[in-house]
Simulated assay, not measured.
Amino acid sequence: MRILFSSYHNPSFWTITEYTEKTLMKLGHELIPFDDRAFIIPDRLRRNARFLQNWDLNRLNRRLFSLASATQPDLCLVAGGNRILPETIQKMKSQGIQTALWTIDVPRSFQPVLDAAPSYDFIFCGGTEAQKLLSEAGIPNTHWLPFACDPEVHQPADVDSEDRKKWGSEVSFVGSFYPNRAQVLEKISDFDLKVWGPGWDKLAKNSPIKKLCSDARLKPEEWIKIFSSSLVNIVIHYQDGKTPCFQAAPRVYEGLACRSFLLVDDQRDVKSLFQDGKHLAIFEKPEDLKKKIAYYLNKPEERNRIATQGHEEVVHKHTYVHRLKKMLSVIEAGG
Rank of each mutant, 00 (worst) to 15 (best):
D190I: 05
K166R: 14
C149R: 03
Q183S: 13
D74K: 11
Y120N: 01
V314M: 04
H279A: 03
K166V: 14
S230G: 10
T15D: 08
D190C: 05
L203S: 00
F122S: 09
T103F: 05
R217P: 07
I84M: 03
L324F: 06
S230Q: 11
T308L: 14
D158E: 10
N54R: 15
I104T: 09
R303K: 14
S329K: 13
S207Q: 04
N61C: 08
N48V: 06
R217Y: 11
L67C: 03
F177Y: 14
F147C: 06
G175L: 01
R181E: 05
L256F: 02
G277W: 07
E129S: 10
S12N: 15
D265P: 06
A79G: 10
A49P: 02
D276Y: 07
S229P: 00
H154C: 09
Q267C: 07
D265F: 05
T17I: 00
H318I: 04
I41M: 03
E313M: 14
I3E: 04
S172N: 04
I226M: 08
A257I: 03
L185R: 00
T319D: 03
M1V: 14
G175N: 03
I188P: 02
H311N: 02
A70E: 10
G81L: 05
L60G: 02
A117M: 12
S172L: 04
D105F: 00
K93C: 06
P146C: 09
L75G: 09
G127M: 06
S119I: 05
L57W: 00
S135A: 15
K299C: 09
K292W: 07
K187H: 11
H9S: 08
H316L: 13
L185S: 08
D121V: 07
H154A: 01
L218C: 06
L45K: 08
K292L: 15
G197L: 09
K202R: 13
G175C: 02
H143T: 15
M327L: 10
F173D: 09
P86Y: 08
H322W: 15
Y320L: 07
Y296C: 03
F122V: 12
D115F: 05
F124V: 02
V174W: 00
S176Y: 10
R62V: 12
P11I: 12
L64W: 05
N61S: 09
A294H: 05
L145T: 05
K326G: 11
